[in-house]
Protein backbone atom coordinates (compact mmCIF):
# COMPACT_ATOMS: atom_id res chain seq x y z
CA UNK A 1 0.00 0.00 0.00
CA UNK A 2 2.53 2.58 1.12
CA UNK A 3 5.06 1.79 -1.59
CA UNK A 4 2.66 3.30 -4.10
CA UNK A 5 3.16 6.67 -2.43
CA UNK A 6 5.61 8.87 -4.30
CA UNK A 7 8.40 9.73 -1.89
CA UNK A 8 11.09 11.12 -4.26
CA UNK A 9 13.46 8.78 -2.55
CA UNK A 10 17.01 10.13 -2.45
CA UNK A 11 19.50 7.32 -1.85
CA UNK A 12 21.00 9.11 1.18
CA UNK A 13 17.58 9.12 2.75
CA UNK A 14 16.94 5.36 2.60
CA UNK A 15 15.83 3.83 5.87
CA UNK A 16 17.80 0.99 7.42
CA UNK A 17 16.02 -2.32 7.92
CA UNK A 18 17.09 -2.73 11.52
CA UNK A 19 14.37 -3.48 14.05
CA UNK A 20 14.58 -4.10 17.77
CA UNK A 21 11.79 -6.54 18.57
CA UNK A 22 11.08 -7.47 22.17
CA UNK A 23 13.72 -10.16 22.62
CA UNK A 24 16.48 -7.92 21.25
CA UNK A 25 15.63 -4.92 23.41
CA UNK A 26 18.01 -3.54 26.02
CA UNK A 27 20.78 -5.96 24.99
CA UNK A 28 21.94 -3.58 22.28
CA UNK A 29 22.09 -0.65 24.71
CA UNK A 30 20.04 2.48 24.23
CA UNK A 31 22.56 4.65 22.40
CA UNK A 32 22.43 2.89 19.02
CA UNK A 33 18.62 2.85 19.17
CA UNK A 34 18.44 6.58 19.97
CA UNK A 35 20.87 7.23 17.12
CA UNK A 36 18.74 5.24 14.70
CA UNK A 37 15.66 7.17 15.84
CA UNK A 38 17.40 10.52 15.25
CA UNK A 39 18.53 9.41 11.79
CA UNK A 40 14.94 8.37 11.04
CA UNK A 41 13.60 11.75 12.16
CA UNK A 42 16.02 13.69 9.95
CA UNK A 43 15.19 11.51 6.92
CA UNK A 44 11.43 11.53 7.53
CA UNK A 45 11.22 15.29 7.89
CA UNK A 46 13.45 15.94 4.90
CA UNK A 47 11.30 13.72 2.70
CA UNK A 48 8.11 15.21 4.10
CA UNK A 49 9.34 18.77 3.36
CA UNK A 50 7.29 20.06 6.31
CA UNK A 51 6.79 19.26 9.96
CA UNK A 52 8.44 19.50 13.35
CA UNK A 53 12.08 18.43 13.62
CA UNK A 54 13.53 19.85 16.83
CA UNK A 55 11.16 18.41 19.44
CA UNK A 56 11.26 14.80 18.23
CA UNK A 57 15.10 14.92 18.06
CA UNK A 58 15.24 15.98 21.70
CA UNK A 59 13.01 13.06 22.73
CA UNK A 60 14.95 10.27 21.02
CA UNK A 61 16.87 9.29 24.19
CA UNK A 62 13.81 9.07 26.41
CA UNK A 63 11.73 7.26 23.81
CA UNK A 64 14.53 4.74 23.23
CA UNK A 65 14.36 3.79 26.90
CA UNK A 66 10.55 3.82 27.07
CA UNK A 67 9.96 1.71 23.95
CA UNK A 68 13.05 -0.52 24.10
CA UNK A 69 13.59 -0.90 27.83
CA UNK A 70 11.67 -3.07 30.30
CA UNK A 71 9.17 -0.43 31.30
CA UNK A 72 6.35 -0.60 28.80
CA UNK A 73 4.47 -3.81 28.07
CA UNK A 74 3.37 -4.16 24.46
CA UNK A 75 3.52 -6.56 21.57
CA UNK A 76 4.24 -5.53 18.00
CA UNK A 77 2.67 -8.81 16.88
CA UNK A 78 -0.51 -8.11 18.82
CA UNK A 79 -0.94 -4.32 18.93
CA UNK A 80 -4.34 -4.62 20.64
CA UNK A 81 -3.05 -7.03 23.32
CA UNK A 82 -5.61 -6.53 26.12
CA UNK A 83 -3.08 -6.19 28.95
CA UNK A 84 -0.69 -3.86 27.14
CA UNK A 85 0.47 -0.61 28.69
CA UNK A 86 -0.45 2.46 26.71
CA UNK A 87 1.50 5.41 25.42
CA UNK A 88 -0.55 8.53 24.69
CA UNK A 89 1.19 11.22 22.68
CA UNK A 90 -0.46 14.46 23.77
CA UNK A 91 1.75 16.76 21.73
CA UNK A 92 0.74 15.37 18.34
CA UNK A 93 3.36 17.36 16.41
CA UNK A 94 6.07 15.26 18.11
CA UNK A 95 4.80 12.16 16.31
CA UNK A 96 7.87 11.51 14.10
CA UNK A 97 9.71 10.17 17.15
CA UNK A 98 6.78 7.85 17.88
CA UNK A 99 6.52 6.63 14.27
CA UNK A 100 10.22 5.83 14.35
CA UNK A 101 9.86 3.89 17.62
CA UNK A 102 6.88 1.93 16.30
CA UNK A 103 8.75 1.02 13.11
CA UNK A 104 11.91 0.04 14.98
CA UNK A 105 9.85 -1.99 17.45
CA UNK A 106 8.37 -3.97 14.56
CA UNK A 107 4.81 -2.59 14.38
CA UNK A 108 5.44 -1.86 10.68
CA UNK A 109 8.37 -1.82 8.24
CA UNK A 110 10.84 1.07 8.59
CA UNK A 111 10.48 1.82 4.86
CA UNK A 112 7.02 3.17 5.57
CA UNK A 113 8.61 6.04 7.50
CA UNK A 114 9.31 7.61 4.11
CA UNK A 115 5.60 8.30 3.69
CA UNK A 116 5.27 10.78 6.56
CA UNK A 117 2.74 13.53 5.75
CA UNK A 118 2.14 12.21 2.22
CA UNK A 119 -1.26 11.71 0.61
CA UNK A 120 -2.53 8.22 1.37
CA UNK A 121 -0.05 7.61 4.18
CA UNK A 122 -0.87 6.04 7.53
CA UNK A 123 1.72 8.40 8.96
CA UNK A 124 -0.38 11.55 9.20
CA UNK A 125 1.21 14.92 10.01
CA UNK A 126 -0.47 14.65 13.37
CA UNK A 127 -1.46 11.09 14.34
CA UNK A 128 -4.92 9.89 13.35
CA UNK A 129 -6.52 6.76 14.74
CA UNK A 130 -8.58 6.45 11.56
CA UNK A 131 -5.41 5.31 9.74
CA UNK A 132 -5.43 2.16 11.91
CA UNK A 133 -1.65 2.42 12.20
CA UNK A 134 -0.60 -0.46 14.49
CA UNK A 135 0.67 0.70 17.86
CA UNK A 136 -1.05 4.09 17.77
CA UNK A 137 -3.40 4.61 20.75
CA UNK A 138 -4.97 8.01 20.05
CA UNK A 139 -5.31 10.83 17.55
CA UNK A 140 -3.77 14.08 18.71
CA UNK A 141 -2.74 17.44 17.41
CA UNK A 142 -4.79 19.96 19.29
CA UNK A 143 -2.59 20.54 22.32
CA UNK A 144 -3.62 19.80 25.87
CA UNK A 145 -6.07 16.97 25.19
CA UNK A 146 -4.00 13.78 25.22
CA UNK A 147 -3.20 14.11 28.90
CA UNK A 148 -6.92 14.06 29.78
CA UNK A 149 -7.36 11.02 27.55
CA UNK A 150 -4.50 9.38 29.47
CA UNK A 151 -6.21 10.29 32.74
CA UNK A 152 -9.40 8.63 31.45
CA UNK A 153 -7.47 5.50 30.47
CA UNK A 154 -5.72 5.34 33.84
CA UNK A 155 -9.09 5.75 35.58
CA UNK A 156 -10.54 2.91 33.51
CA UNK A 157 -7.64 0.65 34.51
CA UNK A 158 -7.44 1.57 38.16
CA UNK A 159 -11.01 2.41 39.12
CA UNK A 160 -13.24 0.38 36.80
CA UNK A 161 -11.33 -2.64 35.51
CA UNK A 162 -8.95 -2.95 38.50
CA UNK A 163 -6.05 -4.24 36.42
CA UNK A 164 -2.36 -3.41 36.64
CA UNK A 165 -1.90 -1.71 33.28
CA UNK A 166 0.07 1.52 33.11
CA UNK A 167 -0.46 4.66 31.07
CA UNK A 168 2.39 6.84 29.82
CA UNK A 169 1.63 10.26 28.39
CA UNK A 170 3.98 12.78 26.80
CA UNK A 171 3.26 16.49 26.67
CA UNK A 172 5.50 19.33 25.59
CA UNK A 173 6.26 22.28 27.86
CA UNK A 174 4.69 24.97 25.69
CA UNK A 175 1.63 22.69 25.75
CA UNK A 176 1.32 23.42 29.47
CA UNK A 177 0.12 26.91 28.51
CA UNK A 178 -3.19 25.24 27.56
CA UNK A 179 -5.43 25.58 30.61
CA UNK A 180 -7.12 22.20 30.19
CA UNK A 181 -3.77 20.55 31.02
CA UNK A 182 -4.17 21.73 34.61
CA UNK A 183 -7.69 20.33 34.75
CA UNK A 184 -6.03 17.01 33.89
CA UNK A 185 -3.41 17.48 36.62
CA UNK A 186 -6.15 18.19 39.13
CA UNK A 187 -8.06 15.07 38.10
CA UNK A 188 -4.97 12.83 38.04
CA UNK A 189 -4.21 13.71 41.65
CA UNK A 190 -7.88 13.70 42.68
CA UNK A 191 -8.33 10.13 41.41
CA UNK A 192 -4.97 9.04 42.88
CA UNK A 193 -3.70 7.74 39.56
CA UNK A 194 -0.40 6.17 40.59
CA UNK A 195 -0.61 4.11 37.39
CA UNK A 196 -0.15 7.27 35.31
CA UNK A 197 3.29 8.48 34.21
CA UNK A 198 3.18 11.98 32.73
CA UNK A 199 6.30 13.01 30.89
CA UNK A 200 6.90 16.71 30.23
CA UNK A 201 9.46 17.48 27.53
CA UNK A 202 11.00 20.62 28.98
CA UNK A 203 13.22 21.99 26.20
CA UNK A 204 11.97 25.53 26.87
CA UNK A 205 11.29 26.02 23.17
CA UNK A 206 8.06 26.77 21.38
CA UNK A 207 7.49 28.10 17.89
CA UNK A 208 7.61 31.78 18.81
CA UNK A 209 10.61 31.53 21.15
CA UNK A 210 11.64 30.44 24.63
CA UNK A 211 8.70 29.19 26.67
CA UNK A 212 9.74 31.50 29.50
CA UNK A 213 9.43 34.47 27.09
CA UNK A 214 6.26 33.51 25.23
CA UNK A 215 4.32 32.66 28.41
CA UNK A 216 6.19 31.41 31.40
CA UNK A 217 5.03 28.12 32.88
CA UNK A 218 7.59 28.21 35.69
CA UNK A 219 8.16 27.16 38.39
CA UNK A 220 7.25 23.79 36.99
CA UNK A 221 8.17 21.13 39.55
CA UNK A 222 6.56 23.17 42.32
CA UNK A 223 3.35 23.52 40.30
CA UNK A 224 3.02 19.77 39.80
CA UNK A 225 3.93 19.12 43.43
CA UNK A 226 1.27 21.56 44.56
CA UNK A 227 -1.26 19.66 42.45
CA UNK A 228 -0.29 16.50 44.36
CA UNK A 229 2.00 14.76 41.90
CA UNK A 230 5.17 12.80 42.50
CA UNK A 231 7.69 14.90 40.52
CA UNK A 232 11.02 13.65 39.16
CA UNK A 233 13.27 16.12 37.35
CA UNK A 234 16.02 14.62 35.19
CA UNK A 235 18.44 15.21 32.33
CA UNK A 236 16.48 13.90 29.38
CA UNK A 237 19.66 12.89 27.56
CA UNK A 238 21.10 10.75 30.33
CA UNK A 239 20.05 7.11 29.95
CA UNK A 240 20.86 6.23 33.54
CA UNK A 241 18.70 9.04 34.88
CA UNK A 242 15.87 8.11 32.51
CA UNK A 243 16.02 4.47 33.64
CA UNK A 244 16.07 5.53 37.29
CA UNK A 245 13.10 7.86 36.81
CA UNK A 246 11.03 5.14 35.17
CA UNK A 247 12.08 2.75 37.93
CA UNK A 248 10.80 5.24 40.48
CA UNK A 249 7.50 5.42 38.65
CA UNK A 250 7.32 1.61 38.75
CA UNK A 251 7.90 1.66 42.49
CA UNK A 252 5.40 4.47 42.95
CA UNK A 253 2.84 2.41 41.07
CA UNK A 254 3.63 -0.86 42.89
CA UNK A 255 3.51 0.82 46.31
CA UNK A 256 0.12 2.33 45.47
CA UNK A 257 1.32 5.75 46.55
CA UNK A 258 -1.90 7.34 45.34
CA UNK A 259 0.11 9.95 43.45
CA UNK A 260 0.56 10.33 39.72
CA UNK A 261 4.19 10.55 38.57
CA UNK A 262 5.42 13.52 36.56
CA UNK A 263 8.84 13.20 34.94
CA UNK A 264 10.19 16.55 33.85
CA UNK A 265 12.71 15.88 31.10
CA UNK A 266 15.27 18.61 30.71
CA UNK A 267 16.09 18.28 27.04
CA UNK A 268 17.55 20.27 24.19
CA UNK A 269 15.54 20.81 21.08
CA UNK A 270 17.39 19.29 18.12
CA UNK A 271 19.76 17.29 20.37
CA UNK A 272 22.38 15.37 18.38
CA UNK A 273 22.84 17.81 15.51
CA UNK A 274 25.04 20.82 16.29
CA UNK A 275 23.25 23.32 14.09
CA UNK A 276 19.83 22.38 15.46
CA UNK A 277 20.76 22.07 19.12
CA UNK A 278 18.70 24.25 21.48
CA UNK A 279 17.39 26.38 18.63
CA UNK A 280 13.66 27.06 18.79
CA UNK A 281 13.75 27.99 15.10
CA UNK A 282 13.94 24.21 14.48
CA UNK A 283 10.55 23.66 16.13
CA UNK A 284 8.38 23.78 13.06
CA UNK A 285 10.62 23.30 10.03
CA UNK A 286 12.17 20.34 8.16
CA UNK A 287 15.81 20.12 7.08
CA UNK A 288 16.72 20.77 3.43
CA UNK A 289 18.50 17.91 1.66
CA UNK A 290 21.85 19.64 2.25
CA UNK A 291 21.09 20.13 5.92
CA UNK A 292 19.98 16.51 6.14
CA UNK A 293 23.31 15.39 4.72
CA UNK A 294 25.19 17.47 7.27
CA UNK A 295 22.96 16.19 10.08
CA UNK A 296 23.40 12.56 9.06
CA UNK A 297 27.18 13.06 8.98
CA UNK A 298 26.99 14.03 12.63
CA UNK A 299 24.59 11.21 13.52
CA UNK A 300 26.99 8.31 13.20
Amino acid sequence: MFNEIDCNMNSNLQFSKVQFPNEKRVATGYAPIALEIRRDIVKMLTLAKSGHTGGPMGLADFMAVLYFGKFMKYSANEPQMPDRDRFVLSGGHLVPVLYSCLARAGFFEPDELSTLRKFGSRLQGHPGLDTELPGLETSSGSLGQGISIAVGMAMADKLVDHNDRKVFCLTGDGELEEGAVWEAAMAAANFKLDNLCWIVDNNDCQIDGRVRDVMSIYPLAEKFEAFGCNVIEIDGHNFEQIVNALDKFEQNNKNKSGKPTVIILKTFMGQGVSFMQDKYSWHGIPPTEEQAEMALQELK
Binding site: T138, D157, A187
Partner: peptide
Protein backbone atom coordinates in the same frame (compact mmCIF):
# COMPACT_ATOMS: atom_id res chain seq x y z
CA UNK B 1 -14.36 21.26 33.87
CA UNK B 2 -16.22 20.32 30.70
CA UNK B 3 -13.10 20.09 28.53
CA UNK B 4 -11.51 17.66 30.95
CA UNK B 5 -14.70 15.62 31.41
CA UNK B 6 -15.14 15.23 27.66
CA UNK B 7 -11.57 14.11 27.14
CA UNK B 8 -11.45 11.82 30.18
CA UNK B 9 -14.63 10.24 28.78
CA UNK B 10 -12.68 9.70 25.56
CA UNK B 11 -9.92 7.89 27.47
CA UNK B 12 -12.54 5.67 29.11
CA UNK B 13 -14.20 5.02 25.75
CA UNK B 14 -10.82 4.04 24.26
CA UNK B 15 -10.65 1.54 27.14
CA UNK B 16 -13.87 -0.15 26.04
Amino acid sequence: AEQNATTIATGMALSG
